[in-house]
Amino acid sequence: MLFGSVLPLIVALACAPLMQGVITRTKSVIAGRMGQPLMQPYHDLWKLLHKGAVYSHTTSWIFRTGPMVSLASLLLALALVPFGGFPALSAFSGDFILLAYLMALGRFFIVLAALDTGSSFEGMGASREVTFSALAEPALFLSLAALARQTGRISISPLLTAVSWSVWAHAAPMLGLTLAALIIVFLAENARIPVDDPTTHLELTMIHEVMVLDHGGPDFAMIQYGAALKMWLFATIIVAVAVPWHSGNRWIDTAVGLAGMLILAIATGVIESSMARLRLLRVPQLLLVAIVLASLAVAL
C-alpha cells in the first residue's frame, strides 16, 4: 500500500523532464526537423549537475537559496496530487490551497534570486512573472472551486478521483470550461506559448528564462528540474479532469494517465507550433479570459 502511494511520486520524479522532451520533439517534427533526442532534458540535467558554479559579485545568499527552496516546495507539492489510479501521498481538507501557495513560495524565491543579480533583464522577467501569476491565481482557484462544487470535495486527491465519465455526462459544459481555464493557467504558469516563448533568444522578450539567466551548474539544474515538476503537476490535474478513467485496475489507470500526459504534451507542442506569442500587453487579457471561463464554470 505504501508503495502504491509513493508510486505517483516516483513516476513524477522520473518522467517529468520527459514531458518537455516530448513537447520539443513535437515542435521539431511539425517544423520538419529531426529535433533533439527525447531524452535531451535528462542529458542537460546530468551535465549541469556535473558543473561548477559561477556567481555574480552582486549576489547574496538569497541567490543561492532560491533554487533550493523552489525545488523543495515543488517536491512537497507533488505529494498532494494523485496520479492514475493511485491517490496522493497526503490528503486533507483544503490541501489544494497549500498546493497553490507552495508554488507561490517557489516563485517568491526565484523572483528574489533574479532581483539579487541587479540585472535589469532579470528584473524585467521577475516583474512579468509576478504580474502574470497574480492574474493566473484567481483563475486557478475559481477552477478548483468549480470542481469542488461539482464533486462536493475540498481536497484535491478525492476531488480528482470523484471526477468520472458520469460527471462528464451530466455536466459536460462546466467541465469543459474548467478544463479550458486550467489549460490557460497551465500555459501561463509553465512559460509556454502564447504567454512566454521558452526557446526565444532575445532577453527582452522572455519571462521565465530571463529570470534565471545568471544561474548555472547545479543551481540551474534544480531550477530546470523544478520547472519540469511544476509542469507535470499542472498536467496531472488537467489529465485527471479530461480523462477520468477509473477502471478499478490501478495499473491500467496509470497507463491511461501516462497516455493522457503524452497527449497533453503533444497538444502543447501543437499549440506552440501553430500560434505566435501574444504581445505582453495582451497576456493579462488572456488570463482575464481564463478567469471568466472559470467563473462561468462555477456559475453553471
Binding site: A169, H170, A172, P173, G176, L177, Q285, V289, V292, L293, L296, L300
Partner: peptide, 19 residues
C-alpha cells in the same frame, strides 16, 4: 447537455466578440 453546451458556446462567442 447538448443544448447547454451550445448555450455555453454562445456565451463564449459573446466574450470573444468583446475581446
Amino acid at each position: 447537455q447538448l443544448i447547454n453546451s451550445v448555450l455555453v458556446l454562445l456565451v463564449l462567442t459573446g466574450f470573444m466578440l468583446l475581446s
